[in-house]
Design a protein around this nucleic acid. Structure first.
Lengths: 150, 150
DNA sequence: TCTAAGTACTTAGCACTGCTAACGAAGTAT
DNA sequence: ATACTTCGTTAGCAGTGCTAAGTACTTAGA
């Protein structure tokens, strides 16, 4: 008997949700070594790969409200991982930039993550890694579109 | 030029991590409607599908330390979604059970999730959904094994 | 049997991350 | 100039993770 389209999607939704929770809990062990929470590392990553940007932009990129990002940026600044300048054209805006120390720490965090993953994903083959990569792309695309059209 | 195995795994690690963060942030909108956090809903799900169990078991299933689970169970109890009995054979243990209300709420949360996902994943085809499902299975398997051998 | 060690859970306290509401400061339009 | 809008911050709430320490019970050993 064929599964209905709805129940199949429900199953995928449930499984992905659960998998995401468990994956992040697993990865937290590595994040705490960096003395920075996962959200901060994620924001820092956006800064490093996306270049300097305003707080609002960063909040939008991370799909988080402004006050949340404001506090994360404050934390990154306090840790010396990012710096804040005022925008010359619009004094309301700030320009958040990753510092050299921030870039260094992100690289270290990535190294730790890959080492943890070498262990975690050691049982998976090349083809399975490929499945994961494609899944990640699909998720980002779908979530990005959904958030974009709001 | 062929990518090295290491950099490929690093890329997969990064992408999956980022995708997981963004997926959960997206799904949170639904969780807050249920007036329960994602961790509590996840634990409740384990109770509903896995049956009654001790706090320690539940903590292990959710890959969380006992104090964290203790507080989550307290929250579920306060909301009337789970009940606690003492184990007859070992008075140190507790037996956590999902209530009828808990099962009902979980079903509602699942419904909300699928409705949100209908929108979010509307752009994905059958084959792509399949990729997501397989990815979820791979993650659970890998994380479970890694946590298991500790 | 009485004591020591171990196990199961709770409590206390810290840090991080999310939200809304409310505010100040700066730009924009009337 | 006045009113509206936008950007960011502050304050305060709730949830989720941890470790350290305490309580209550069970088990093992002298």
């Amino acid at each position: 008997m064929p599964r209905s389209k709805e129940s199949f999607r429900l199953e995928v939704a449930d499984r992905m949700h659960s998998a995401a929770i468990h994956l992040l809990r697993h990865a937290r062990k590595q994040d705490t070594l960096a003395r920075q929470g996962p959200a901060r590392l994620s924001a820092l990553s956006v800064l490093v790969f996306g270049g300097p940007m305003a707080l609002g932009q960063l909040a939008a990129a991370e799909q988080v409200k402004a006050p949340t990002m404001s506090r994360m940026v404050a934390g990154l600044k306090r840790s010396g991982l990012a710096k804040i300048e005022t925008d010359a054209k619009d004094a309301r805006r700030i320009r958040v930039t990753a510092t050299a120390k921030g870039e260094r720490l992100l690289q270290q965090a990535r190294s730790r993550r890959i080492r943890l993953l070498e262990e975690t994903l050691s049982s998976l083959g090349e083809a399975e890694m490929d499945t994961l990569l494609r899944a990640a792309e699909l998720i980002e695309r779908a979530v990005g579109q959904s958030a974009g059209r709001k």
